[in-house]
Amino acid sequence: MNINPDQIVFWTKKVALFGTEFTFNLNMTIVGTWLLMFLIFVGVHFATRGLTDGLKINRWQNLLETMVSFLKNEVEGTLQRKATVIFSLVASLFIFILVSNLSGVIPLPFYVPSTGEWAVYIPPTGSFSTTVGLMLLVMLSVPLFGIMRNGVGTYFKRYVEPQWIMLPFNIIGEFSSGASLAIRLYGNVMSGTVIVAILLILAPIFMPVVMQLFGLLTGVIQAYIFSTLALVYIVGGLGDPTLKEKQEWEASQEDAS
């Protein structure tokens, strides 16, 4: 049983860089990520052809509009101010993880030339490398946005609050929240694929379908949780909105309604 898609290697190359030799493995994680990137780009490209603002809109436009307005409401509701580049980050995370988790139900075979065998497609979020990468993206953007807004001193002051004795605990808390963010997503998606694989041996007719149905539900919920937690951590780094920002946001809310 393979619980690590990094071990399915399609193509390998040794690269000499700065005097050391690195091995570049084109594995299932990278191929799956490229496939999903291609799907999302092409899908969004064709969905945004011929946008209209009339009463009758294209079904793809309807899908994207529903998604974007839902995400925008969520992000602005948590931020309590107008959505900025943070909205783009959180929405991209949500859409990538959602598409990746849902793509796990497609039984896509891949030919592996190095071993001459066939391998089943594993979604990129079922790989620890991808989830750690996404987690690092979130955990680095927390200080980035915080320092951009408040300056270095005010941002790092939150580590010695309420007392300087709490400094090590605050630092440990930062690491453990990052670790749990990555492990939660990886564990959920990977366990879904492994349980389906085990049930295919035990009860091959009916049970895998039920578990995959359940996997669709958990996939959507995990995508929502990952992006919500990312947003909550970023807001924690940003701090409370100023009165002006809040008033601007409330004014824009009234305009929209």
Partner: peptide, 11 residues
């Protein structure tokens, strides 16, 4: 997620 951690360890 706590249950998922233990499932991961078991796997």
């Amino acid at each position: 997620s706590t249950a998922i951690y233990s499932l991961l360890v078991a796997m």
